[in-house]
Each structure stands twice: as C-alpha cells, then as structure tokens.
C-alpha cells in the first residue's frame, strides 16, 4: 500500500518543524522505506497506519525525525576535503601560530567524519591535539559515535586498510576506534536551527551534505550561525553540491584543486 498524501504531509511537517529539512512531494518512497522498520517494530500493518497512530503519540515523534534525517556516511568521505585539510588548511593556520585547534563536525551522524578528522591530524600533525566537537540531531547516532564501534560493512566504506590496522581494534564482530582518537572527539546533541554549540570559536567547521536539505532562508540562517561560531580566519568545508554563493555573500570561496573551501570575509564574523 502506498502512503496517502495526508500521511506524507503529516510526516513532512513534523520533520520540517523539528529539523528544517524539506521533504518535497515525490519523496514518498523515502518516507516509506525509512519508516517501514519502525512500523514493523510497532506492530503496525503498514506505514500508513503507523503514521495515523503517530498523530496521537508524540513520544514516537523523535524516532520518526531520526529515521528521516539520518544519512549515509563513510570514512574520509570524498577524500579530497581531508587532503585539503592536511595540505592547505592546517599548515596555513599553524603558520599563523595556531596550536590548539577547535573543530566542529556538524551533522556528524555515527562519527565517521569527526574520527576521520582526528585520524588526519594524527597522521600528519601528531604534535597537535585537536578538540573536535561532533554534533548531530539524533541521540541514536551520537551514542553510536561515542561508542566508536563499527561493523565490518561500515569499516569497508572508505577506511584505508593501513588506518584500520593502526586506529582500530577488532572486538568480536565489530571494530572499535582506539581511545587516543576517540578521546579527541566530543559528541553533543545539536540542532542546526539553534545557536552553535559551545566549544568555539572554531578554526575549522565541517558542514557537509547538510545544506542541500534546507530551503534558501534556512541555509542563510544556518550559515550565519556557523559564521558567528568561527574564528575570523577559520575555514568552512561544505559538501560538493553545496556553496555559499547566491545564499550568503559574507563568505569568500577559495578553490584548492577540486575542492572549494570557505572563510568569513574580513570583518564578517558577526
């Protein structure tokens, strides 16, 4: 049975209110596939009847929002940004005298991105110990990140074998990240619609593959809050399909190879 328009609209409104993520018509398949496991667990006959029951059960709303806002992730996702981090961004900031790096990995999902950042520092700048604040909307994902335990399928996604050997230990069927890396990452609940998390001003912010889900107004709003949380000479990494151009002109784009990075234009940190 396909999802009724009514049920879809209810879920889309709930997700938009909680996370600002826009679920346009045509994304019915996404709602169905993400909510089907929840419907099964709840003993509902199908997603439609599960959504009907949701209207009177606010305790399940968090689960629904989580199911629809959790996205695929991998180690060193797209590789290029991590190369730019160690070839360009960190050396430049070190050149300005920076030693104590504060980094924000926003919408960090199950932790692959912040841990990839920590491993990049460990590989290339072992004398530097960055403080990495990793935030996500989903408590479930934050718990997974804190545990630092990954299945073999998750480990296969993008983690170079030499890094697996160096920074993980096999514990039964899973691989756990080593304490020296795990201790550098602090997981915190955060909604991008709210003020930036404590721990700044941030020298580097990763906000990758998040803005694509927002409308222009929300993008501008999120970018403004990110800018306010950053050091004046800090750098922002966005996803490949994302840009500040045409959204918020207070950012300067810097092209490094195939990767664009951004920094606040002078005097525009506030």
């Amino acid at each position: 049975m396909t999802l009724t328009d009514d049920a879809f609209d209810f879920v889309a409104t709930l997700v938009r209110q909680r996370s600002a993520i826009q679920l346009e018509r045509g994304k019915e398949y996404l709602v169905e596939s993400r909510l089907a496991p929840l419907a099964r667990t709840a003993g509902a006959t199908d997603v439609d009847s599960y959504v009907r029951a949701l209207r009177n059960d606010v305790t399940k709303h968090d689960l629904v929002v989580e199911a629809l806002t959790t996205n695929e992730t991998s180690w060193f996702r797209d590789a290029n940004p991590f190369a730019v981090l160690h070839t360009t961004v960190v050396p430049e900031l070190v050149g300005r005298g920076r030693r104590d790096f504060r980094i924000w990995s926003a919408a960090c999902s199950s932790g692959q991105e912040p841990y990839s950042i920590a491993m990049t520092f460990s590989e290339h700048f072992p004398a530097l110990r960055p403080q990495i604040i990793a935030t996500d909307l989903s408590e479930l994902m934050l718990d997974r990140g804190r545990a630092g335990e990954y299945t073999q399928l998750e480990i296969n996604r993008g983690l170079p074998a030499p890094m697996l050997v160096k920074y993980f230990e096999r514990t039964g069927a899973t691989f756990q990240i080593t304490p020296s890396i795990r201790n550098q990452v602090h997981f915190r609940h955060h909604n991008l619609l709210e003020p930036a998390p404590l721990g700044g001003p941030f020298d580097i912010v990763f906000l990758r593959n998040v803005l694509i889900y927002f409308d222009v107004e929300t993008k501008r709003d999120v970018l403004r809050r990110v800018r306010m949380s950053m050091a004046p000479d800090g750098y922002l990494f966005l996803g490949a399909a994302e840009t500040t151009i045409g959204v918020d002109e207070t950012w300067e784009r810097i092209q490094v190879g195939n990767t664009s990075i951004y920094r606040p234009r002078e005097g525009k940190t506030r």
């Binding site: 991998s74 060193f76 996702r77 797209d78 590789a79 290029n80 996604r157 993008g158 170079p160 593959n209 694509i212 996803g239 490949a240 399909a241 195939n258 990767t259």
Partner: peptide
Amino acid sequence: LDKLQFLGLVEMKETV
C-alpha cells in the same frame, strides 16, 4: 570504488 579513488586509480567523485 571508494578504495580505487583513494588509491588514485579512478577519478575522485564527490558524493551528495
């Protein structure tokens, strides 16, 4: 494909 990209054997494509 991830591994081939890291090894520089196929062109790096950023994902969305």
